[in-house]
Amino acid sequence: MIDLALFADTAFFWGAFVFMVACSIAGIGAIRLALKGEAVTSLMGVSALTTVAGVSLYLIQIIFDVEFARDTAIALLVLGAVGTIVFARLFRMEGGQ
C-alpha cells in the first residue's frame, strides 16, 4: 500500500516543478514580446515576465524553503503590477506631460 503522506509531498513537489517549467515557457514568450515591438508592447511583455518570475520564486520558497525568494516574489508581483499601471498612464499622456 502506498504511503499517502509521501504521495502528497511528491505530488506537490512535482506539481510545483511542472508549473514552474510552464511559467518559464511563458516567460520566454514574454521576453520575446518585450524585446520586439513598440513601447506599450514591451511594457506588456515585462509585466507578464514579472508575474511568471514572481510566482516561480514564491513556489521556490515553498518547496525549497528559500526565505529571501518570498520577499523578492512579493516585491516583483506588487511593484510589477503597480509599475505597469503607472508607466501605462505615462505612455498615454502626450509628450510625457
Partner: peptide
C-alpha cells in the same frame, strides 16, 4: 487595471 491601462495607452498612442 493593468490590462485596461495598457490597452488605453496603446489606443491613445
Amino acid at each position: 487595471f493593468c490590462g485596461n491601462a495598457l490597452a488605453n495607452a496603446y489606443y491613445y498612442n
